[in-house]
Structure formats: structure tokens, C-alpha cells
Simulated assay, not measured.
Amino acid sequence: MHRLAVLGSPIEHSKSPTLHRAAYAQLGLDWQYTAIDLDRPRLPAFLDTRDESWRGLSLTMPLKQDVLPLLDDVDQVAVQAGAANTVLFDGPTLRGFNTDVGGIVRTLGEHGLDSVHRGLLIGGGATAASALIAMAQLGAAHVRVLVRRPGAASPLQALGTSLGLAVDEAPIADLATADGADLVVSTVPGGTDLGVAASDALARHAVLLDAAYDPWPSRLAAPWLATGGTVVHGLGMLLHQALLQVRVFVNGDQHSPLDDEDAVLAVMRESLS
């Protein structure tokens, strides 16, 4: 029996065990997937002491960044994002992947958004980096990053240059007058009070993907919904990044579909209801 787990601290809120257990049951695999509370200092020793029964790990922040120097092989998206949310035990080799980017692209596609020209990004952390890469994959030419602390978007501006799109920084207060974006992605915790509401024009015309899913609706999503705007629930990103993780753990590659993948996705989605 293979063993897998999601790591983080705190971790008791994680829905990953529910999603993954549903997938492996559908696939007929007797695999064990648990949640383990683990902080940053204990990560190296944890990786070093896994035996051959271990197949993989899902990682939450801040472990997504801390794990990179501990890996033997890292996929291109994880290198770009500076974060790996997935670790595969491939014999003696530790392989890292980023499925957050694919999760964003896939959930937006489900809601009919398969191209972006101008994006707006709220927050400047590792999830924001994944969102920026997703926007680039969807064709964005320009992304504005709203942050509270001046200079916080500098790493994202450098990433944008490497991706071939223009990234500029603005204060979070600009959300009140922002307009012209096709897509807004918020990467701040759901209970965060931004101190400002989105402009009605932005809420009416742009799709909002709020990476947070608890509490729901978030403080940003609630007024967006009230204006009749389109909001993509953060659980969609979680669902699709988890499906890509299952691909990694089963097939060794996030781009290789599972057998009867539609059925696997369906039971994973049902497990969240």
C-alpha cells in the first residue's frame, strides 16, 4: 500500500484528504492519504525519513517554497513560480511539481474563460506567482498587481519579464477605481479585510477567481456577487490542482490523464459537496 499526505501547519482545515481519498477509491487503489501538521524546520528531516511505502506529498504554504532546495528534480512551472505544491517519491529521487497553475487554468476553462488580455492580481505571494503564470498561459499581455506594501510586487514584475508580459504595481486602494481587466485573481485569505471594495465597473465586467474558499463567500466575493458579477469559487482551483496531483502520484506526470478521468473528477467534485 502506498502512503501519501498533505503537509502544513495548521492543516486540520485541509480538504485534500477528502479529495484524494475519493480519487483513489474510484481508481480501485488501496492507498492511504492523511493530513500531517508539519512546520518549516521539520520538513528536511521528514523527507529524509520516509520509507519505500511513501508515494507522494501535497504541500501548503510556506512549505511550497521551502521544499525546492530539498528536491532532486523540479518541473519547469515550479521553477518559474518558485513553489512546488507536489512531491513525488520516485525511487530514491524526489521530484517536485506545481499543479496550482494548471488548477487555475482548468477551473477558469470550466467557466468559459480560456483567454485573457488584461489581468488584475491581488496579493504578492507564491499563489500570486502561480496565478501570474496562469494568466500568461491564457495570453495576458498586461497584469496589474495590487499590494499593500510598496515594492512587494517586485518579484512578480521580474517573473512577468521572464514570461513576456508587462507587470506593474499599484496600491490596494486602486481596486476602488480599477476597470478594464478581463480577469481578477485574489490570492489573499478569504477573511481578509482589504479596506476597499472593487469598483462596480470591474465587478460587472471581469471574472473574479478568489483562491480562498473558507469562509465563503469571501469579503471580496460577496459584493462582487451582489452586483451580478461572475465569481469562480476557490474550491474549483483546489479540485483541479488535486486532480493533477493524482495524475502525478498515479502516472508520474501531471500531463498524463488518468484512466476514466471524467469519473474520477466527478467523485472528487462530489466529495466537496
Rank of each mutant, 00 (worst) to 15 (best):
G160F: 07
R149K: 15
S154L: 14
L120R: 10
G102P: 05
L175N: 04
L71Q: 07
P223S: 08
L194F: 07
I36P: 00
G195R: 01
G103Q: 00
D260C: 11
L159C: 06
T187R: 10
L38K: 02
A128K: 10
G125H: 11
V77S: 14
R106F: 08
G190K: 12
G180C: 09
V248K: 02
L121Q: 03
H13C: 00
I104Q: 03
D66I: 14
H240L: 12
L175I: 14
V188N: 04
E270F: 01
S186V: 10
G103C: 08
G190P: 07
A158C: 13
D253V: 02
L88E: 05
A211W: 08
D37I: 05
M61W: 02
K64T: 05
Q137V: 15
P257Q: 03
A170M: 12
G228S: 12
S115C: 14
R55C: 09
G124S: 15
R247H: 04
A173Q: 15
L57C: 02
D48L: 13
D260H: 11
M1Y: 14
I122V: 15
F89H: 13
Q32S: 14
H111V: 06
G191I: 08
P257G: 09
L68A: 10
T107M: 05
L243W: 01
A201C: 03
V264N: 01
T107D: 06
T34Q: 11
P62A: 06
I11D: 00
D100C: 01
V67L: 06
L59F: 06
S9M: 06
A126H: 13
A173M: 15
T161R: 15
L163C: 11
A35K: 03
T99H: 04
A266N: 01
G229T: 06
D73R: 10
H117M: 13
D210I: 01
P155I: 11
T86M: 11
V267P: 00
L27F: 02
L163P: 04
T192M: 08
